[in-house]
């Protein structure tokens, strides 16, 4: 076991941004922390990096209970390194940035040179060695920041949204680096993302965070809704744009719903007779490992997953009109 977190709460001005019962994170894995913006992912990473102490609760790191002893924290920080979402490089050359962790660890100078060169090679930035770090692009900065983090020879590397602000080419490079540092160097990797596809591609384990809490399943298609009863006594969710979806829930009033993308049915023929059916337009198609993800604009943006096998029979294209049906059992209240 790498980390064990018990009843961790982090609050700012009495507002809890993180409220976790129990989390166990395993050693040697690539773990994805998935969640929308404001879910508390960055706060959790900073706690795991020992940069932020929780308001209450216990953290265990490799059988050691963490306390606020500053000397001990500095030692622990040398085992865990965080790469921020928008990493900042020191105002000097790329070389000196990567050299920094080695220098403060008093690594002999001759050895440092070889190590920096090797790391630059790993992230594909060898030709930028003597370039001023502030002249690099977002993707290049991200890669140098990863190399600088690896120069700490950490047991754990924490990456905050490593691919959120980089182009596709850099994304592919960063994904390769993550796999390599985990498989070849055996470093545990914990990364945050709001991209389900990316997590399914990279992570051995996934933890879903929503509004500061761990959610049981991966919620997608999340909407806030109001449960109302119509004249006929039937209950339905009213979504902010006026869209109505039938429900058999006992609950009333304001709630939050998630429509499971695997349970939504899609049809190219009008099937208005079924309940909770709406017409929409395909605006995006993405290929995943086993499914094709179809994003439909049906007044609300709705993700639908179609198994790859059956997708072929559809002949769907972007801009096509489709009818989508959200069966009552596809909608979860949470």
């Amino acid at each position: 076991m790498l980390y064990k977190l018990n009843n961790i709460i982090k609050a700012y001005d009495d507002r809890a941004v993180l409220d976790l019962n129990q989390i166990c994170l395993k050693k040697g894995k690539v773990i994805g922390l998935l969640g929308p913006n404001g879910a508390g992912k960055t706060t959790l990473l900073e706690i795991l990096a020992f940069l932020l102490s929780p308001t209450s609760g216990e953290i265990w790191f490799k059988q050691e209970k963490i306390n606020s002893n500053i000397g001990r924290l500095i030692k622990l920080r040398r085992k865990v390194v965080l790469v921020q979402q928008h990493p900042i490089l020191f105002t000097t050359t790329v070389y000196k940035n990567i050299d920094f962790p080695l220098k403060i660890r008093k690594t002999p100078k001759a050895k440092r040179n070889d190590m920096v060169n090797e790391l630059l090679e790993l992230v594909g930035m060898a030709s930028f060695k003597d370039v001023g770090a502030h002249t690099l692009s977002g993707g290049q900065t991200q890669r140098v920041a990863i190399a600088r983090a690896l120069a700490c020879f950490p047991e754990v590397i924490l990456l905050d949204e490593p691919m959120s602000s980089v182009d596709v080419e850099n994304q592919i490079t960063i994904e390769r680096i993550i796999r390599e540092i985990n498989q070849i160097k055996g470093i545990s990797v914990i990364f945050t993302t709001h991209d389900v596809v990316q997590t399914s591609r990279l992570a051995d384990d996934t933890l879903f965070l929503f509004e500061g809490k761990v959610a049981k399943s991966i919620y997608e298609n999340i909407f806030s809704a109001y449960i109302e009863t119509d004249d006929g006594g039937q209950k339905y969710f009213r979504l902010p744009n006026g869209l109505k979806l039938r429900t058999r829930s006992e609950k009333t009033g304001q709630t939050r719903i998630s429509i499971s993308p695997g349970k939504v049915r899609i049809s190219q023929n009008s099937c208005n007779t079924q309940e909770n059916t709406r017409k929409g337009k395909i605006i995006q198609l993405n290929q995943e490992q086993f499914n094709v993800r179809v994003l439909v604009d049906a007044g609300i943006p709705l993700n639908v997953l179609i198994p790859k096998g059956s997708f072929k029979s559809y002949e769907m294209g972007i801009g096509d009109d489709v009818w989508i049906t959200c069966p009552v059992e596809s909608i979860d209240i949470f």
Binding site: E46, L51, R77, L82, I88, F100, C152
Partner: peptide, 25 residues
């Protein structure tokens, strides 16, 4: 930027080294 402080700390700097990073910037 506070990210300099956090970057120095997470890279293993002690308080004196972190202060030096900030003064340098």
């Amino acid at each position: 930027d506070d990210r300099y402080r956090k970057a120095a700390l997470t890279l293993g700097a002690n308080l004196r080294q972190t202060a030096w990073v900030i003064i340098r910037e």
